[in-house]
Design a protein around this nucleic acid. Structure first.
Lengths: 237, 237
DNA sequence: TTAAAAGTTTACCGGGCGGTAAAGAAACTG
DNA sequence: CAGTTTCTTTACCGCCCGGTAAACTTTTAA
């Protein structure tokens, strides 16, 4: 009566065992990749491996359909190690959120010596087209980022993280606008509002390219900002 | 050997029966609400009931965590009727997508007699603040709409639906801009690009209000459009 | 009045998911 | 090298979700 599940004792092999062992494809390169100068594969490295596997799985399946199993299949380790390093699925996602935001902010290059006009355009370009290097394309990253962003509406904790991140991004643009106003190359506008507008347009183009597949959205947004917004901003009279 | 499930024959009641029957709260008002002039509750009405229940469930739980059961709990009928009227969860969601887009477009009031300046502003306001009447608030609707919009990135079919809808929205704004240019109240800009910019800002403000909780995003966007974009557009020289 | 068609409910299930327990391997200690 | 800790794997499970089969009820049509 205790083992009432489903005719298990027939051959001693559970029917669910098949899918777990089937993940053994293309193995044999275990531990050849992740070692640093030392020969050890430390916990730090493993967490990093999990983060990257999570990214890949998220790219493929989307947030809604992401299964722990999918992440496991994206790395050389089994999916159960995740439960050792993270406290369940939600904890993993929270850590991943920080991970991808750190990556985003780390990729923003600042050069404060250029004049405000040039720097403002450079910043917009960076947000719209991103650094060309990196193993994954800018839009692979953005797709994942943007999906998490939208899901933040149902999660107060994640929303908070995004708010702080957003504030830094917007702030950095507002700064440049303020600088330009002080130097007299921009007309005297509400810098906060102008920075917000530019940030908004960037975000919308991103969303349009990702959700609707409009490949040219970033370029078009770039031109629109240039022709209509900066045109208005740089008219010092 | 055939009935090997889980000690069912003990009392004739399955252990899962509890949660199903528990949904019987606050019943007894069946059929009092949905009848039209005729006394019958037709299939059309039932589908409508399901759509509304889906909307409510989607508002509460979000797309990711939406269960068929949640929808069932939002109406007087049991959740199994959904399977009678729709061919599974995906079919339901597709129908709901059309439903909410129709609703959105139906709520847009057009009055072509106003001058382009006024009408353009009216359209922006309508997208940002929406009609005040209706049983649900504009933002309840928008939250659901926006979540579906983002999820379209993982679903080619839904993406197509949104693209068509988006094109209609953007087109209607572009039209007004073109009209204004012809009448000479707007300067001679690329109407497509201008319309796209305005549409983008509207969408971004919406996303920001929903995902980040910025209550003032629509108002601020409204002001920014007015001060920076329309300012540039209406400067006929 | 009856029969069949349409709509709804009750009862139930297979499968898949996140998670755990314990065995095993590897890496630090003394 | 033994003992301990840190990390990984193998094996497994309970639960919950979407879906179905069939009984039941209401509406339509003759």
């Amino acid at each position: 009566m205790s083992e009432s599940q489903g005719g298990v004792d027939e051959a001693g092999v559970d029917e669910t065992a098949a899918d777990e062992t089937a993940a053994d494809e293309e193995g044999s390169e275990t531990g050849a990749d992740g070692d640093s100068s030392n020969g050890t594969v430390s916990s730090k490295d493993t967490k990093e491996v999990i983060m990257e596997a999570t990214f890949r799985a998220l790219s493929k399946h989307g947030y809604k359909d992401l299964r722990m199993r999918d992440i496991g299949e994206e790395m050389d380790l089994t999916r159960q190690v995740i439960h050792y390093h993270f406290d369940g699925k939600y904890d993993l996602m929270s850590s991943f959120l920080e991970h991808i935001i750190d990556q985003y902010e780390g990729s923003v290059v600042v050069e404060g010596d250029a004049d405000p006009r040039t720097e403002l355009r450079a910043r917009v370009d960076q947000c719209l087209f991103g650094p060309e290097f990196e193993e994954f394309s800018h839009w692979d990253r953005m797709k994942v980022y943007h999906e998490l962003y939208t899901h933040a509406q149902n999660d107060g904790e994640h929303r908070e993280v995004f708010n702080e991140h957003y504030e830094r991004l917007r702030g950095s643009i507002v700064e440049v606008v303020e600088e330009g106003i002080e130097e007299g190359v921009f007309r005297d506008v509400d810098a906060e509002r102008m920075g917000q507008l530019v940030t908004d347009v960037i975000h919308a183009a991103r969303g349009r390219r990702i959700s609707l597949g409009h490949e040219d959205a970033p370029e078009e947004a770039r031109k629109a900002i240039d022709e209509f917004i900066f045109e208005s901003l740089e008219r010092t009279e």
